[in-house]
Design a protein around this nucleic acid. Structure first.
Lengths: 177, 177, 177, 177
DNA sequence: ACTTACGGGACGCCCCGTTCGT
DNA sequence: ACGAACGGGGCGTCCCGTAAGT
């Protein structure tokens, strides 16, 4: 279920109860362990995969629609800021919170989160390769962009303000142009 | 107690039980509500403050010891990477995980986390102002640096590898030089 | 299925899940309620019947093969002790545990268990009648023998030692000779 | 709590929920894990101890009040039969059911059950030693008596009739006189 | 002033026994 | 015959107060 994606994104992995998820998704409780024999961890892993795909598609759309990389960065930041404000700063990255929470305790979920991050990074790197960057350069630069956006998103949620996100993106875009 | 700082850093806010904290800190259970009438939230707030001060001092030492900003960024990344590896990728940022978890539920703790972030950002900005940057430019650039490091730390923990941290820092340092 | 017999014998009725039984018996889960519309109770009842027949045959073989009643008692005790030790004191009486667990809640299963006990008692009584005892005397004496063996089996499992079984049988055999 | 003794005695260990026990004993759930950090197993162990002591005292009273061993056996059987009938055959031995259920899964509880059995056996053996039996003879005979009573109790509960208990006791008493 | 011991609900995850729909 | 669905509860433990003691 993708009710899990939404709730993990808002409250985090640990704070979200399975009951809450089934209620939110109007799914019966008993079926959960039929579809996800691995329990909450499996559910989280699949949520990471789904969120990775969905968010990845969104990132791709923005990145491909932008005229150049700096423009893409700013566009992404604006999009994330809009989502943040629309939800009252509840909805952040659908992967980051869970990734941090389970990094030390659940290797399987951490790996799924990592795969999602990798996918996004690859989307950005792909665009830069098409712009003529070398493979290695594109990869490193994409990592930086993704990291900066994720980090700025944390700062923005803590401050309950889109400023850090907008500022960091603007600065990074400027540096890259 | 600063046992809380350590545990929140490793497992996150929600996953850490009060029992665990008192055990880890060899403090009596009943005393907790005497010293922290606000309960877990107050404890977390004070943990954010303490971690902010400690981490801030460390950042200041590194930043002041570096020859220029790019060198400082790389030095910080190496330091964080070292801590990551030393702890088996358990110990990340003492504020970020908690900040994400409580962003939507506990304004007080979120504010404390924000204050910690602000302190760190100010340390970095301060250095750049001393290097002759304008107030506004220094602030934005410091936000970017902090965001990039925090974001890269997430990626690194998910991947259980210091690579994202080292790469993102190297790329950012290069852009800034 | 007689996978149920084995599992009820080891872990008891309540502690054995239907899933476990189907897995142990390589039977499909959904088929269970086709063959046993009465659910777990019916399964238990039939397990009692099957165990009663099987164990009864074994008792008959031992009893008929022994030279006299005291010898039969000792032989039975040795056989039970051997099964106990072979299984690490996991496998006791296939009926007693379930009988005790459901005595208060499931009359149907309790009746099936009672029938199994009656069958065994009859096997022993039959032998004694053939040895010339009166109907009434044989019945009472068989009840005592069965009770002593069942009771000693409990003591033996609790102590994880065949001693109570061997001792009680020896004492009873001596009294009867 | 001795509500546990009562419920384990009626329904068995596995079938009795902790909630049920706290409800039955009017104790709050949260307090349970303060007094019994070991959880259900510890509760069961202490229930075995308590039941062992209480039942042991009762056995001692009967045994000491009887004129000789055969009379004691019959008196015990009558007492057990009375308890059985009074409760609609719900209340059996407070130790046997649990002992059988946990024999394979919980060594600690099994040991506690064994200790209770040993205590009872010792009470009976003690009486016989005072009657002039040798140490070894008294011990073996006491084991037989205890086993026969426990076993007959199972048969009686399955049959929902005091007959097996009364008959087995009568037969054993006769053999001993 | 500070700590201990204890009481007290609420809920988390897991899994159970059962019944549809095919 | 059987995969899928379905609630209900089990045990553990959490976060929080309070009454008594030092």
């Amino acid at each position: 279920v993708n009710a899990a994606v939404d709730l993990f994104q808002r409250r985090g992995f640990v704070a979200t109860g399975l009951n809450e998820i089934t209620r939110h998704g109007r799914a019966p409780k008993g079926s959960l362990y039929f579809h996800f024999p691995g329990g909450k961890e499996q559910l989280a892993s699949e949520a990471m995969v789904l969120a990775g795909a969905r968010y990845g598609a969104m990132i791709r759309a923005v990145v491909d629609g932008a005229s150049d990389t700096p423009a893409a960065i700013n566009a992404l930041a604006r999009l994330m800021a809009a989502g943040l404000e629309r939800s009252g700063f509840e909805v952040g990255c659908p992967v980051a919170t869970t990734a941090l929470e389970v990094a030390a305790t659940s290797p399987a979920v951490a790996a799924a989160a990592d795969a999602a991050f990798d996918g996004w990074q690859e989307v950005i790197a792909d665009r830069m390769r098409r712009d003529g960057r070398s493979r290695h350069e594109a990869s490193r630069r994409a990592t930086l962009i993704l990291a900066a956006l994720e980090g700025a998103l944390i700062l923005a949620r803590a401050k309950r303000s889109p400023r850090p996100l907008i500022d960091a993106a603007a600065e990074l875009a400027e540096l890259l142009s």
